[in-house]
Write a protein that binds this DNA or RNA. Structure first.
Length: 658
RNA sequence: GCCUGGGUAGCUCAGUCGGUAGAGCAACGCACUCGUAAUGCGUAGGUCGUGAGUUCGAUUCUCAUCCCAGGCUCCA
């Protein structure tokens, strides 16, 4: 007999050789059925592994994150087996579990690629493997034995060799673990895969999965390496969990900003103009204008000085800044002109540097904050474009702050306040912060200044009591930065704002100020954007609100609907009153039924629909049908105007003081 | 840039095994004048992304190209 300890501290005695699955069975049939793996003495283990006396054991069930991870990873093995069955000679590389699912990368014989039809066939083959209830049988071996076992799997051999040479990465580790002992899981005589595990006891435990898409993926994520066929899938513990997930995906698709931009007539991407270049329609332009006006107002109050700079510049400017060396690929190609080579600007900072450098600066002017809604052009690669989120022409709410090193921490601290206040104004309140530090292989400036600037950013974060992550080596070459991600209404995270220190440009543009000591000093430059790009921020907002902009931002705030044409004159009067009060309002005559017109207004997500009929004409009232609220009759026009302006003022006021 | 799909009416899509295309919604017209999410009837609307090739004939097949979607890579 052996005795094992459970997570609650209790002990169980089991016959020698018993497994975690046996243990789960003694605790309860339900647990045994839901179990997919175990954690033994802190290590994830197969349910079928024999337990030892004194082990600390907890059972991993299929409705936990860890349990789903096991399900997904095991399903990836089934996928690999199905593909090798259908396409003999397939070489497979890696197939990890990922958030919500899994993928597996394949190199099919003769460079064959997979189509969507293939996916359906593979899925059917996978179902057959699940029905066959094949066991997952673990074995362990030395690297040499593994090289022999996987002799016809070059990708596996490469992983084994790399790990043995101690240069493996985390993806490799998921395959082979420590490297001195390599484990493999066999499902059948014909299929064995190298893997750390753990796995479910048999394929019959799986089945609630769906293959989603096929795509190319470079081996080891290296663009120069061979392109493999990657199959993505999702897997869950039950049909209902799978269905819920698929439903969530549909709901997310329904609030896709590209869909909403078309439905709500906000903007479009005419192919005549070219990929990644948007035109803003009147309704989208209203929202954008309010966003920009708001941004200008906040910057004006925040002590920023507004500047304008051109969209074109001689290439020499970007030679000075160094961007041509680093980012020429990401810039629009040069235009040869009679007095030099010109480029569209991919950023505003060098031009702001020139404004700084246009005359001698005193320490008394610092911090000097230059602000511009600056439109820039970047040649994003065709495959990288994504609606407003990744776009080739966009407008940054861009500011460059020139300050002394001593001012850096204070300036960053007040910037954090500013950023959060602006983001809150637009309805975001869940933020995460990341501090990116020096990439030892790619940086300018002395170690000393990096150290002090990084410390200043850290101090600013800590002064706010903010929790933050560290991204080692993720800084731009010119200085450390703080990135701010926001979480939207459906839980997705977006990186919007950024605050970056820059030691490069001040040096390259030879920026100076005269200090109180009458000597010349070099300022530090801060780049910062709050929206990031106006376009992208608009896209995130659109998805955040699912198109239902709050009243202060809504393109149309009120629509007045006369019950019949007899009430159109009164409706026009109401419109006039509302317009005089500053509301964006229109009216639709009674050519169509009232229900139809209300439906149309609801689909346009107008915040307020006002219905006016006989009663209202008689009493100077309106019927108020608010978006997402209850209908209210007999509200006087004055009362509604008061309510509307109070709501708009309130959100604007809150926005200004947040 | 690479892999896999796709581009047909304003939108969502069907269709043509090669013989110049159809639905729903939207638009327009007429009737209806209606109290809170779809009134009825009718009309119009497309060189089937663009260019070339094969063919008696191409929206359909081939090639090129542009654009879109999902990935990979990239993102100052």
């Amino acid at each position: 007999m052996i005795t094992v300890q459970l997570p609650d501290g209790s002990e169980r005695s089991l016959p020698a050789g018993a497994t975690a699955l046996d243990l789960a069975g003694t605790i309860g049939r339900g647990l045994a059925k839901a179990s997919v793996a175990a954690v033994v003495n802190g290590t994830a283990t197969d349910l079928t592994a024999a337990l030892n006396d004194g082990d600390h054991v907890s059972i991993v069930t299929d409705n936990t994150d860890d349990g789903r991870h096991v399900l997904r990873h095991s399903t990836a093995h089934v996928l690999a087996q199905a593909v090798t069955r259908l396409f003999p000679g397939t070489k497979f590389s890696v197939g990890p579990a990922i958030e919500h699912g899994f993928y597996y990368d394949f190199d099919l014989p003769d460079g064959r690629t997979l189509s969507d039809d293939d996916l359906r066939a593979i899925e059917a083959e996978m179902k057959a493997i699940v029905s066959a209830d094949q066991p997952f049988i673990r074995s362990e071996m030395s690297p040499d034995e593994a090289l022999q076992l996987f002799a016809d799997q070059p990708y596996k051999c490469e992983i084994i060799n790399r790990v043995r040479a101690a240069s493996g990465d985390s993806l490799d580790a998921a395959e082979v673990g420590r490297g001195d002992v390599i484990s493999a899981y066999r499902n059948s005589d014909a299929f064995v895969d190298m893997c750390v595990g753990p796995h479910v006891p048999s394929t019959g435990r799986l089945g609630y999965f769906a293959l989603q898409r096929v795509s190319g993926a470079h081996w080891r994520g290296d663009e120069g390496a061979r392109m493999l066929q990657r199959v993505y899938g999702t897997a869950w513990e039950s049909k209902s969990a799978l269905d819920e997930h698929l439903t969530r995906l549909e709901q997310a698709a329904a609030r896709d900003h590209r869909r909403l931009a078309i439905d709500l007539d906000l903007l479009s991407f005419p192919s005549e103009i070219g990929g990644g270049l948007a035109v803003w329609h009147p309704k989208g332009a209203i929202v954008r204008r309010i966003m920009e006006d708001y941004s200008r107002l906040r910057h004006e109050r925040g002590g920023y000085q507004f500047v304008y700079t051109p969209h074109l510049t001689k290439g020499t400017l970007f030679e000075t800044s160094g961007h041509l060396d680093y980012y020429a690929d990401g810039m629009y190609p040069p235009m040869e002109m009679d007095n030099g080579t010109y480029y569209m600007k991919p950023m505003n900072c060098p031009m702001h540097c020139l404004i700084y450098a246009s005359r001698q600066r005193s320490y008394r002017e610092l911090p000097l904050r230059l602000f511009e809604l600056g439109t820039v052009y970047r040649y994003e690669r065709a495959g990288a474009l994504h609606g407003l989120m990744r776009i080739r022409g966009f407008t940054q709410d861009d500011s460059h702050i020139f300050c002394t090193e001593e001012q850096l921490a204070d300036e960053v601290a007040s910037l954090l306040d500013f950023v959060l206040s602006v983001l809150r104004a637009f309805g975001f309140d869940d933020f995460t912060f990341n501090l990116s530090t020096k990439d030892p292989n790619k940086y300018v400036g002395t170690d000393d200044i990096w150290e002090r600037a990084t410390e200043a950013l850290r101090e600013a974060l800590e002064r706010h009591g903010l929790e933050y992550g560290i991204k080692e080596g993720d800084a731009a070459f010119y200085g450390p930065k703080i990135d701010i991600d926001v979480r939207d209404a459906i839980g997705r995270s977006w990186q919007l704002s950024t605050i970056q220190a820059d030691f490069n440009n001040p040096q390259r543009f030879d920026l100076e100020y005269v200090g109180s000591d009458n000597n010349r000093h070099r300022p530090i430059m801060l780049h910062r954007a709050l929206f990031g790009s106006v376009e992208r921020f608009f896209g995130v907002l659109l998805e955040h609100y699912a198109g239902a902009f709050p009243t202060w931002l809504a393109p149309l705030q009120v629509r007045v609907l006369p019950v019949s044409s007899a009430h159109e004159e009164y409706a026009a009067k109401v419109v006039e009153q509302l317009r005089a009060a500053g509301a964006r309002v229109d009216s639709v005559g009674a050519d169509d039924g009232l229900g139809r017109r209300i439906r149309a207004a609801k689909l346009e997500k107008v915040p307020y629909v006002l219905v006016v009929g006989d009663d209202d004409v008689a009493a100077a009232t309106v019927g108020v049908n608010p978006r997402g609220g209850e209908v209210e009759r007999n509200v006087t026009v004055d009362a509604f105007i008061k309510r509307l302006t109070a709501e708009i003022d309130e959100s604007t006021r809150r926005a200004l003081n947040a």
